[in-house]
Design a protein around this nucleic acid. Structure first.
Length: 973
DNA sequence: GCAAGGTC
């Protein structure tokens, strides 16, 4: 019997021939220079084997000539035009070889990769071979690594090809072609027709169902960076010098509250604890801790690690892994699987690594009892195992060695044990405030010995006894500032695309390259890190389509996710290929009609960005200086500059940066508040009696001058927002109802108002509140330092607040954005909801990637109605009319708040703050109230700060607007 | 001149 085996690629044909023949193989050339035929007898099945290959897909799909010319038809007709499948010219030699070999074969055995595309390529091979021998018997060899055990098993136990998977891929091919061609031609031709820049350059302005969501991610992050406003915060820092092993060691204690955004509150707390001379050790805990070994390696993790640890681009890493796979050193490198099969042969593979000079001894250790089964991830593509070394490679160099080393070390690490350590936590009470310090001793490094990409640093801490008291060496207020998110890196984008199902392991890197090639996105080096930012064309397109307002946005991942889920349905036989195609084409056809009808919006958006750029360039825009030149102004509260190079500890002249609240007070910056300057600090200057260092003891409890402000050890924002740290002179005169200068603050919550500035009473007495509208729009004026020029059209284009779309809920408030975190088809999808939360709000709910609905009157909901929303959709079943908690399919019980709750959905689970069951952490009676209640936590003896004020966001009394928890929806973050 | 997915 003669068996013709056809692999997906020449390298696999060679490898399986070597394995099955035991090296006794004859090689014949074909007309294709890459493809060889390998002949040998396979005694195990008493057959004559010929092994050959194709090179990926054998067939190409295209429209007939009447539709190929762009001017020959309306692009709309491409939704219905015939599509031919043919062997393209470049593959004719491969086709001829298959026809020749099939004529004399009894059996055709398909050896393509075991995934959907492999099944489809298999059918392409069958369709060609049957032309030469219609009744040839067809079998499918199933394998997931090029190792003898698997290859022999596949050859001796072939299965049937999965037609449903091949059909699903066929549907995807046809759909992508129709959508891509129709939208690309329409938008390219229209833009060329209407805008001279496109007529001159004649570049294709392509649309693709993966390209546009990828671009959407870049634009979205860019807008987040652009609209970010840094916010100052303050915290109390405590330290103690104590002897450890004969040396003085500085123990730094962290404030349990973390940091607070209300400076006044921190000062009051600081002054309160100033009344106490000593701190007390409340508890000393020692426990064994583990640092978990890494999960088995997937393609996406490999690409991310390659970018972050090895400094190789995702595409480069994948190219190298592919080459090493073809050489037999690695398993298949394109896999989503992060769990091993229970029968996986670890011993054999570990044994192959014992010869390596770098990690051979570690591998031996695994053989001699150190082996522990790898952790089990949550993903399994059922086609391939996690990426692992299949042979030892001793002669690699350069980037290939870097990639091979990483994969092998990762594999050995995953077969080792978690690292083990002993952690000490010293909890301290100082006044009514709590602090803690931690120490760590690493007991067993285990996997860390072979995995240098992770660190676990020991931190020694001197002995402390419970109930002992000590006088802190330092107690001071330090200041920091929230930092902007970064623009996307390639690794970030890979992760986002993977999470949202855009592209495959093999194509994600290519899609990124495409939007760069199309000049929708520009790469920019920031030091050694490469960031991606949208071009003016990229932003113009995305925002233009957003203005059209589709049911499902073209630049969001939802559409592609749906397509993927349709493909899975076809694979599982739940839907036929034709049915899936019909439904999907109809959906896109409707979108096309809307896009064509309203394309004027895209044109004006693109024109606005591109020509706005040019205008700025020719009218002498300041070339990206940004609005932040006025650094060093005064905010009216005497805080002084915001220069983070200042450092009190090192600055002998402390007078330039103090708070200066008291009239004529010189600012102070001692590190100790009780006349106990830290070693090396300069002698006190001046004669200020209120200076705490000069009062020979403690600071006056109610004085606001004896406060040390250390400049931040938290880095500043990279964005151009320093202008908002500077007050215009008129701002200094703004007074609240009680006559005091008003404080200027910034909304920091992630909501539609994020970044907006407002005034409020600086003493929190009169409840004064006012938005700073003019300032808000002013800060967005002027050219941006971030928007790059596209195609030399000009310099940069400002982003205005009008570009950041917001929606209003039925209370006529700006709605807030949330993201679905629950697993399911909507995971990761963004929605708008009422700022007041589910229980108190109007029930407003809209998906971000769907158009805003006409305003509906707000209805007052009773408590019994609180689980339903007329416009919202349930997260669980996606039906309207009820929330997930009341879902008839099995909703979750209500939770008081979403944040900080334990993972369990029932209050029977332990609170994570106090460890007791019966309540969630956000209502924990024992835990220290964190930010939402920070003002209320201040002793009320001074009467200024209780939580009797109205919340800025919902108008209710009893909590502050800063408490996101009061407004959050369950299951979202 | 168009897509996404294979591979060379």
């Amino acid at each position: 019997m003669r068996v013709l085996c056809v692999a997906e690629k020449p390298s696999i044909a060679r490898s399986i021939s070597q394995i099955l023949s035991g090296g006794r193989v004859e090689t014949r050339p074909t007309q294709n220079k890459f493809i060889k035929n390998f002949d040998f007898d396979y005694a195990q099945t008493n057959s004559a084997f010929t092994v050959t290959a194709v090179a990926g897909h054998l067939l190409a799909h295209d429209f007939p000539d009447a539709y190929k010319q762009w001017s020959s038809c309306d692009p709309f007709t491409l939704f219905d035009a015939p599509i031919h499948a043919m062997v393209p010219a470049g593959n004719k030699s491969i086709e001829r070889n298959l026809l020749n070999e099939a004529r004399t074969a009894n059996t055709l055995m398909i050896w393509t990769d075991c995934d959907r595309e492999g099944e489809n390529i298999g059918w392409e091979i069958i369709s060609v071979c049957r032309k030469a021998r219609p009744n040839i018997v067809v079998k499918r060899a199933r394998f997931s690594a090029i190792i003898p055990q698997q290859i022999h098993r596949a050859a001796q136990h072939p299965v049937e090809l999965d037609k449903a998977q091949a059909d699903a891929v066929e549907a995807r091919i046809l759909l992508d072609l129709r959508i891509g061609a129709a939208f690309t031609r329409m938008q390219t031709l229209t833009l060329q027709n209407r805008l001279p820049q496109f007529r001159e350059k004649r570049d294709v302005v392509s649309y693709g169902p993966c390209q546009f969501p990828t671009l959407g991610f870049v634009v979205s992050r860019y807008n987040q960076v652009k609209s970010f406003t840094p916010e100052d915060f303050w915290y109390i820092f405590l330290s103690l010098e104590r002897e450890l092993d004969g040396e003085m060691k500085k123990v730094e204690f962290t404030w349990r509250r973390g940091h607070l955004f209300e400076e006044d509150v921190v000062i009051e707390i600081y002054e309160d604890i100033s009344e106490f001379p000593r701190a007390r050790v409340v508890k000393v805990t020692k426990k064994n801790v583990k640092k978990w070994k890494p999960l088995p390696l997937t393609t996406v993790e490999l690409q991310k690690a390659g970018s972050r640890l090895l400094k190789l681009t995702p595409k480069k890493v994948l190219d190298i892994a592919e080459k090493l796979y073809q050489q037999g050193f690695l398993s298949y490198p394109r896999t989503e699987t992060d769990q091993y099969d229970p029968q996986f042969d670890f011993a054999n593979l570990i044994g192959k690594q014992t010869v390596d000079p770098a990690w051979g001894r570690f591998a031996q250790g695994l053989q001699e009892g150190g082996f522990t089964s790898p952790r089990k991830g949550k993903n399994n593509d059922k086609a391939h195992p996690p990426i692992h070394p299949t042979a030892h490679a001793g002669n690699l160099a350069g980037d290939e060695k870097k990639v091979y080393d990483f994969i092998t070390r990762r594999f050995l690490a995953s077969c080792s044990k978690d690292a083990e350590g002993s952690e000490t936590v010293v909890e301290v009470e100082y006044g009514e405030e709590q602090f803690y310090a931690t120490g760590l001793i690493v007991l067993q490094r285990n996997y860390l010995d072979v995995y240098p990409y992770e660190k676990w640093t020991a931190k020694e801490i001197p002995d402390f006894r419970e109930n002992e008291e000590f006088e802190p060496t330092t107690c001071e207020i330090k200041q920091g500032q929230t930092t902007s998110p970064s623009l996307l890196t390639e690794a970030d984008l890979v992760a986002l695309m993977n999470k949202n199902g855009i592209g495959t392991d093999a194509t994600i890197a290519q899609h990124i390259q495409t939007i760069i090639d199309r000049e929708y996105v520009i790469e920019r080096m920031d030091g050694t890190t490469k960031h991606l930012l949208p071009s003016t064309l990229g932003i113009g397109l995305v925002e233009g389509y957003n203005e059209i307002g589709f049911d499902r946005s073209l630049s969001k991942p939802q559409l592609r996710r749906e397509a993927s889920s349709f493909i899975v349905q076809v694979c599982q036989g739940e839907k036929s290929k034709d049915q899936m195609l019909m439904e999907s084409i109809e959906q896109y056809r409707e979108m096309y009609v809307i896009a064509r009808r309203e394309f004027e919006k895209v044109i004006s958006s693109v024109r606005r960005y591109i020509e706005g750029n040019r205008t700025q360039n020719t009218t002498g825009g300041n070339g990206g200086q940004g609005p932040g030149d006025g650094r060093g102004g005064n905010d009216g509260r005497g805080r002084g500059t915001n220069n983070r190079n200042d450092n009190n500890d090192n600055a002998p002249d402390n007078g330039s940066r103090g708070r200066g609240r008291g009239a004529g007070r010189q600012a102070t910056a001692p590190s100790s508040r009780r006349g106990r300057p830290p070693p090396g600090s300069p002698p006190p200057e001046g004669n200020d009696e209120d200076h705490p260092r000069n009062r020979g003891g403690r600071a006056a409890p109610h004085s606001r001058t004896g406060v040390a402000i250390s400049q931040p050890d938290v880095l500043a924002s990279r964005s151009s927002s320093s202008a908002q740290n500077v007050l215009a002179s008129s701002d200094r005169l703004r007074k609240c109802k009680c006559g005091a200068p008003a404080s200027r603050r910034t909304v920091t919550q992630t909501c539609a108002r994020q970044g907006r500035l407002f005034y409020e009473c600086s003493t929190n007495k009169c409840g004064f509140f006012e938005w700073i509208e003019d300032e808000d729009s002013r800060k967005n004026d002027g050219p941006s330092p971030l928007v790059p020029a596209k195609r030399a059209f000009g310099a940069e284009q400002p982003i205005t607040t009008s570009n950041i779309l917001t929606r209003q809920c039925r209370c006529k408030e700006d709605a807030v954005q949330r993201t679905v975190t629950k697993d399911g088809i909507n995971k990761g999808r963004i929605f708008w909801t009422c700022v007041k939360g589910r229980d108190e709000g109007c029930g407003f709910f809209e998906w971000e990637d769907e158009p805003s609905k006409p305003a509906q009157p707000m209805t007052i909901r009773t408590a019994s109605q609180n689980n339903a929303s007329s416009s919202g959709r349930c997260f669980k079943c996606d039906q309207e009319g009820h929330w997930a908690s009341a879902c008839p399919t099995g909703g979750m019980p209500n939770r008081p708040k979403s944040h900080g709750a334990s993972k369990s959905d029932t209050p029977a689970a332990a609170c994570f703050k106090c460890g007791k069951p019966g309540h969630y952490s956000n209502v924990c009676p024992t835990a220290i109230p964190l930010r939402p209640d920070s003002r209320a936590a201040v002793p009320k003896k001074r009467g200024g700060t209780t939580s009797n004020d109205e919340c800025l966001r919902c108008g209710q009394v009893g909590h502050y607007s800063s408490g996101m928890d009061f407004h959050a929806l369950p299951q979202a973050s």
